[in-house]
Design a protein around this nucleic acid. Structure first.
Lengths: 151, 151
DNA sequence: TCGACTATTGCAAGATGTTGCAGTAGCAAG
DNA sequence: CTTGCTACTGCAACATCTTGCAATAGTCGA
């Protein structure tokens, strides 16, 4: 009795975790999980659908989005929003990070630990508010572009 | 020679500022400007269109969005994204603030100065990056909801 | 006041998500 | 292996933005 498929951790047990909650393991969900397991870091909703279609051309967007909701409840992904407000999904663990985006040059960076801690710490200390950093894309102007703007 | 219309500051000179740049003052833009002048704080794109339609039922969404782009270039509004990624427009000045949103209870607060400074300062010191706080909605869990989640 | 230049508009189509509903198909029990 | 409950799917319609294009209409100079 080999496993359904050799999925890397932490995806191997998804099927059973779903069933334990009375949820179901379907071909469509399997497609999404396989794509996510092969994804490193983050994907936008559109990219994800695109990749699912590579495996199964019949993929329906609404099904993918609903599957992502379920996987987020299991803690396997987190959704956030890019600089333009479009959805972005982070594959956990190991990809829980915020993004920094320059509105001028369009570049994006990951927010590094010191700044992440500054943000999370500031709200925790003041209000007891627990920030979900990976939900956010901080927008502004990078040093190069800010300098260039001063003629 | 009375002004075109008695718009409150800083909207009174919009017409001339547009013309100075070779841009035009149209009835459609006037509608948007009037609505914004009567708006306190922020509005979502959908709300704005709704209010414009109250004044002019012929209002076309794409025209409104394009007008907002122009007004943003003049510095009269800033766009940002709410917790769900939808657009939100801040009427400047005086409404340049970030938002804090609890994913559990759905409440939203304005980010206060100490936390705002902590964020802006952290990025400025480390990378010279100038954060546009009003673009962002920081999402997480408020103290009450975080507490309730611990059973 | 008239004419020409070109910024804007209105419209239609497309991208990205969300939602309601009826039919389908997992899954656990017998 | 059946059967029944109900979670899921597929679809269609809608919400929010964005973009390309032809026609319209502000502006400015003569």
């Amino acid at each position: 009795m080999s496993p359904v498929e050799s999925l890397p951790e932490p995806w191997a047990g998804v099927r059973d975790r779903l069933r334990l909650r009375g949820l179901r393991w379907t071909p469509q969900r399997r497609t999404v999980v396989e794509v996510l397991a092969a994804t490193d870091g983050h994907v936008t909703g559109a990219e994800l659908i695109e990749r699912c279609r590579d495996r199964d051309p019949q993929t329906i967007p609404s099904t993918v989005y609903r599957t992502l909701d379920v996987l987020e409840e299991l803690g396997l992904v987190r959704h956030g929003h890019g600089a333009d407000g479009r959805e972005e999904f982070h594959v956990t663990p190991g990809a829980e990070h915020g993004h920094l985006h320059c509105a001028d040059c369009g570049q994006t960076w990951e927010i590094r630990a010191p700044q992440a801690d500054a943000i999370v710490g500031a709200f925790r200390a003041a209000d007891g508010f627990e920030v979900d950093l990976s939900h956010v894309t901080v927008v502004g102007r990078c040093a190069d572009c800010a300098g260039a703007a001063d003629e």
